[in-house]
Nucleic acid binder design. Structure first.
Lengths: 213, 213
DNA sequence: GAAAAAATAGGAAAATATTCCTATTTAAAA
DNA sequence: TTTTAAATAGGAATATTTTCCTATTTTTTC
């Protein structure tokens, strides 16, 4: 769980990230310049040397490194339900959730039928949120609803997407397909006829992945 | 950041959580029974003693405690953007996002107008997910859409909710109000007339907070 | 390229954490 | 309630980490 080599290489990384040499980092932390020498990490008898908690604390305080992030860098992975773990929710289809014993008397999911679903499972570092204004997208989206947009999620037929024109206009549509010269979409509300947009006029097509209610 | 007293009290908690005394935990971890004695945490000169990383590693290995959770228990809080931190997304209204410089050339949010929004900000430990079957809730929810349901989120007029009858039937509706003998709701699609349900026949009203798209 | 400074290696000494051991206190068992 | 076992306190001895110091290597400065 805490592996000698990983602890030391995490220290190496802290030094690098802050543009210190090892002796520079030690000095900055108020320790002796030889404190983190690579040559002193394994003793002459082969015994592994670990830095003390006090030395580590000095590193964290000096560099502003969070001990949690340090441990993650040292290869420690979150435990299910623990800090940094992906949130998991009980999950079941509506039809199966109508079975007699899907909920207990307090209204909580119960029984073996429920699966686990990671929420929100959003891995796109470039995701952003758009807040709906007005009522033009009702009943689908109402004023104030938050749309979570994932630029890197591929847009496939039927997906709801945000399109931005090259002059900056944003519209929400249902993606149909992309052709060499056009992008075909359907409106989300109202008239259900295909709309053809000039591919050159579309700056991007980003997929909507979640909508607040 | 790593505070002496917090480290030791986190060790105390690991022992308690696993039904060990301190000496029992030490023995189990292959250490001397006096290793974690409260009497030895501050020396006679007032100097604070920290457990070594090796002793901690033995505790983690023996009890299955994740070092990240241990640190959290010892009061270490996540750093913004670091492990365990709440995910924050750039956020802007659709109308403001149509300003000329809201996105850069790569289609990423840019500029001072963008706020930060914590997503999903779901704090209800009893939240669960329901998967939509069929097309009866279109255009709002389509087959396979995931609805995130938060039982403890209060249902207010206009909120979309899941209602469960006492015989187990689940329906999705728009909440209007709760009266002493009735619950008034609106259908999410179709005929826009108020539906009155007998309060005694409704097991629960749980709010839908997010819907996948 | 030479000189100075910084970084690193390595060994001894010092400081700190753990173990060993004894005694006392507390909890569990009879 | 008494006896036994476990837990804890406390001091000395031992083990481990850090510091001190010197030497070598590497990098930076001129």
């Amino acid at each position: 769980m805490l592996r000698h080599a990983d602890i030391w290489s995490a220290i190496d990384k802290v030094a690098r990230d802050h543009n210190f040499t090892l002796s520079g980092l030690a000095k900055r932390a108020g320790l002796d310049p030889s404190a983190f020498n690579r040559s002193k990490r394994i003793g002459p008898d082969g015994r592994l040397r670990f830095p003390s908690l006090e030395s580590l604390a000095r590193i964290f305080d000096t560099t502003g490194t969070n001990p949690l992030d340090f441990l993650a860098q040292a290869g420690v992975v979150p435990s299910a339900g623990g800090i940094g773990a992906r949130k998991k929710l009980p999950s079941l289809s509506i039809s199966d959730a109508q079975l007699r014993d899907a909920f207990d008397n307090a209204g909580k999911p119960t029984g073996a039928a429920w699966d686990e679903l990671a929420f929100p499972d959003l891995f796109d570092d470039d995701a952003y949120a758009l807040i709906v204004n007005g009522d033009s997208l009702e009943p689908l989206y109402r004023d104030g609803n938050v749309l979570i947009v994932s630029p890197h999620a591929p847009a496939r037929r039927g997906d709801r997407v945000i399109l931005r024109s090259i002059v900056g206009r944003l519209v929400a549509r249902e993606f149909v397909r992309r052709l060499p010269r056009h992008v075909e979409v359907l409106p989300l509300v109202g008239d259900n006829t295909i709309e053809t947009m000039d591919a050159g006029g579309v700056a991007f097509v980003h997929r909507i992945v979640w909508a607040s209610q």
